[in-house]
Design a binder for these strands. Structure first.
Lengths: 245, 245
DNA sequence: GCAAACTGAGTGAGGATTCACTCATTGAGT
DNA sequence: ACTCAATGAGTGAATCCTCACTCAGTTTGC
């Protein structure tokens, strides 16, 4: 059924639309564009912002939906169409905001983990000494994930499902984080707060791993409220005592 | 070796093919049943056995190749044909020994982790008290992987790439392992060797996570010889001190 | 010469991505 | 104020490519 095959300018012959869709079904079907209560933060913006907001809004909805769906099904088992459905947009819309399914996971990670890291950069310097900082890191990492089970699952499990993401993108952040912890340990050793006979790097990896392991089992398990907070306290107690000179 | 109890028999693995297979089900006739090398009593290795050995050898060659390729590319990015090529066999041959790509990962896991678990079951009871047992677990887990970087990567990273494998198969072993650690902690608390104010479960998760984290960064990083052994000693020192009453 | 083991080109399911098309908005022209 | 062309976000069915898996045929072992 050729239809109007004069439009072969594209690489591939046009998708043949057999029937001229009913002109009306669309309007009724998806008024999606309009709506969204949205934060009143943008109060001062005038009408022009409507479109702008709507636009930014979609991206956010897609990200939120992606966290949920990825957490439930894993990265590979998740169909882009599922994310689209969960976000209330069309499949194609996702590609207006993200290059690919992988880049979606990528953005998710950057978006959320970026927040965690910058928060940490802001808060840590306020702590007086190495032990306090170490405790703060533990509290932060576990505290921020408490109540965000989906996100926790994405970070601990899903992230590792994309080898490329893991190796190309996450590794640097990951190492930066490890280095930050190692630096705290080294600092503590310099001031005599921590024992000298452990490698800061090894300790950092072990601490990170412990946090990750606790988060993982919490996320995969029943994820009781408060459990992470309790765990954080205990872990910090044991570690600080173990690291004491 | 493994294979003894492939409890989770999976039929349709990857691409679901609905087609009503022929009456003669594969399971029965599968030559795969053909035992593995069972090499050991290979004393009288004469010429005739050359082929024979090659034959039994295949399964093992495939497993070894799979560890390597999975570690390099990840589970999903690995093509079955790559594994076949690395093993020096045809694509189809893999299906004589394994039901599906997933079952290949599955077998890999069972094969290797089975060793760790049984070793543990044999060795742990020989240790006198809880602290010694805890140290033994740490030494074992890290010691087993030292020098087996690919395997380490498969266990720590790749395993999590198959959501199903993770949930259906690994979880039980995983929990059994955690419980074993938790039991040691509880034991130590009962005998007064460990402080009372930490939850054995949380401690177990943290310890496992620490081991996992060390292994992970070691595997993804430069994987220096001896590093894991050193790490094991330090981790044990810190933990035992931290857990002391 | 037969069966078991092996091979590898071919099959087809599946799913990410594309792109021709819709239509609410915008704003220029009258 | 009122067309009406232009715009481009949004849509989703169609496309096309990638593999996991199959099986007809070949080789090897006895």
């Amino acid at each position: 059924m050729s239809e109007s095959s004069l439009s072969l300018r594209r690489r591939r012959a046009g998708r043949g639309r057999e029937e001229p869709r009913s002109p009306q079904d669309r309007a009724a079907g998806r008024p999606a564009a309009r709506e969204r209560p949205e934060n009143g933060a943008r109060a001062t913006n005038r009408q022009g912002s409507d479109k702008r907001r709507r636009l930014g809004d979609k991206r956010d909805r897609i990200l939120k939906a992606a966290v949920k769906v990825f957490a439930r099904n894993g990265f590979h088992a998740t169909r882009v169409s599922e994310v689209a459905k969960a976000a209330g947009v069309a499949d194609g819309t996702i590609y207006l905001y993200f290059e690919s399914k992988e880049e979606l996971l990528f953005s998710l990670f950057e978006d959320r983990v970026g927040k965690l890291l910058s928060f940490m950069r802001d808060e840590l310097p306020k702590k007086p000494d190495a032990p306090a900082r170490l405790r703060a890191i533990i509290d932060m990492q576990l505290g921020l994930l408490e109540g965000e089970r989906d996100l926790a699952e994405v970070i601990t499990v899903i992230l590792r499902q994309s080898t490329r993401l893991m190796k190309e993108f996450a590794a640097p952040h990951f190492n930066a984080y490890l280095d930050a912890i190692a630096k705290i340990i080294a600092e503590g050793q310099a001031t005599g707060a921590f024992r000298q006979d452990v490698s800061p790097h090894i300790a950092a990896r072990a601490i990170f791993g412990a946090l990750d392991g606790i988060t993982l089992t919490w996320a995969l398990g029943r994820a009781e409220q408060g459990a992470l907070g309790r765990a954080a306290g205990q872990l910090a107690d044991v570690l600080l005592r173990g690291l004491a000179p």
